Computed example of a mutant assay.
Amino acid sequence: MAQRTVLLVLFDGVQSLDVTGPLEVFSGAEAQVPGTYRLRTATLDGGPVRTSSGLTLVPDTSLADEAVPHTLLVPGGQGTRAPDPRLTDWLREHGPHSERLVSVCTGAILLAEAGLLDGHRVTTHWAYCAKLARDHPSVEVDPDPIYVRDGQVSTSAGVTSGIDLALALVEEDLGRDTALTIARHLVVFLRRPGNQAQFSAQLAAQTARREPLRDVQHWITEHPADDLGVEALAARAGLSPRHFARAFRAETGTTPGRYVDQVRLEHARRLLEDTTGGIEQISRTSGYGTPEAMRRAFLKALGTSPAEYRRRFRPAATPDRRTSAP
């Protein structure tokens, strides 16, 4: 197997975890299968840079002295807000020659500025998705997934999703067993599916201003198996169904039905990850009623079945945090 060079681009204001997270994954893979990866860090001039948290990183070399890598990884951070034009020019010239272009967090902005994301479906940190889409209309920005792989280009959301994406790349290169060993060593799950949402349902939706609607939101979260139809929720809020549905959407940014769907999906995911409860039991506890209904919901939202989700997200060797579903 040919050795793959992974080059991480460093710059002032880089987010340190965007660098060290993927670096730990690839270095773990190199330790498991020596000769697999050649890891390099580089800056424009070969000099040290200061991260957004104040750490100083000393690179291996300058970008000018590095050959075209197999995998070019661009992290994010405050330094992407006003990028050095010389860095953008370097990416524009050299990026297309790498077999894989990878970004973590707002590193996608640098790739977009270099014209390397045109025509691709991508993601970035949720706070910058709208800006990326507005500034680069030829880029298809998906604000929901934790990472997106589209041909040569792979982009990820916040800092921890860079680890998830790196694990996915290692699994592609070296197989699941190697990636699983690395994930266990780093005490992370192998692996969050790329289309898993960046937010939990409670974070994705706004919190309602009015207390009755806010109370209903809490009720939904705490009672996913109850009757959560619009009429039942409206009665709990003391409003007519029509008024409730309109007010809920206006104050939370989503419909009652979609919010319920998100809460139930999140509840089921958590039970699959954290418990040994059976699929039928979890489907009832999460409000789906039947395993088939839960299966359809998982396929629609995550592109995978509940059983496959559990297999990926909760390795058999991972100790239980609870022994059964509540």
Rank of each mutant, 00 (worst) to 15 (best):
T221I: 12
D226H: 14
A112E: 01
H218N: 13
R295V: 00
G76Y: 00
A301G: 02
W126G: 00
A29H: 08
V187W: 09
R121D: 01
L39E: 04
P34L: 06
L174S: 12
A108P: 02
D84A: 01
P315M: 02
G77V: 00
G119W: 06
Y309T: 02
A232D: 11
R295M: 02
Q217R: 14
I282A: 04
R100L: 08
L302W: 10
L174A: 13
T41N: 07
S138C: 03
Q3V: 04
T318G: 10
E222A: 14
V216P: 07
Q217Y: 13
D12A: 03
A235W: 05
T61E: 12
Y128V: 01
A130F: 06
L233G: 05
V187A: 14
D135H: 05
G79Q: 00
L203R: 15
H267L: 06
T276R: 11
A112C: 03
H185C: 08
V68Q: 07
D60W: 04
Q196R: 10
D84I: 00
T318M: 15
V187C: 08
F11Q: 02
L213S: 13
Y288Q: 05
I109D: 00
A201S: 13
F313Q: 15
G277V: 01
H94L: 04
L167W: 06
D18Q: 03
L265E: 14
K300D: 09
T88Q: 13
S156I: 00
D60S: 06
T181F: 05
V159T: 12
A325K: 02
D274K: 10
V58H: 14
E211C: 03
P143G: 11
E171F: 00
H97E: 14
S103L: 03
D215G: 14
A208Y: 14
R40Q: 12
L203W: 13
A2E: 10
T71P: 04
H120Y: 07
G257C: 04
R242Y: 08
R149M: 11
S154I: 02
P34K: 13
A108R: 01
Q206F: 15
T290W: 15
R295F: 02
E66Q: 07
D215A: 14
A2D: 10
E93S: 14
H125W: 06
P241F: 01
G253I: 09
T207Y: 12
G287V: 01
A245D: 13
A168R: 05
L132H: 03
P315A: 11
A250F: 08
H267R: 15
T124Y: 09
T318I: 11
P193N: 12
G79C: 00
D135T: 03
I220W: 09
R176S: 06
A225D: 14
R311V: 00
K131N: 13
R191G: 08
L8A: 08
P212A: 10
T123R: 07
A127H: 15
G287K: 01
D173A: 07
T106A: 07
I182M: 11
T178L: 06
A316L: 14
T276Q: 10
D65W: 04
D274M: 14
G229N: 08
A205N: 05
L265N: 12
E251P: 12
L101H: 04
G76L: 00
G77F: 00
R81Y: 10
L23N: 05
F11W: 05
F26I: 03
D173F: 06
V9W: 09
E30R: 09
G95E: 06
V141M: 12
P224N: 08
G13I: 00
S16Y: 04
A232T: 12
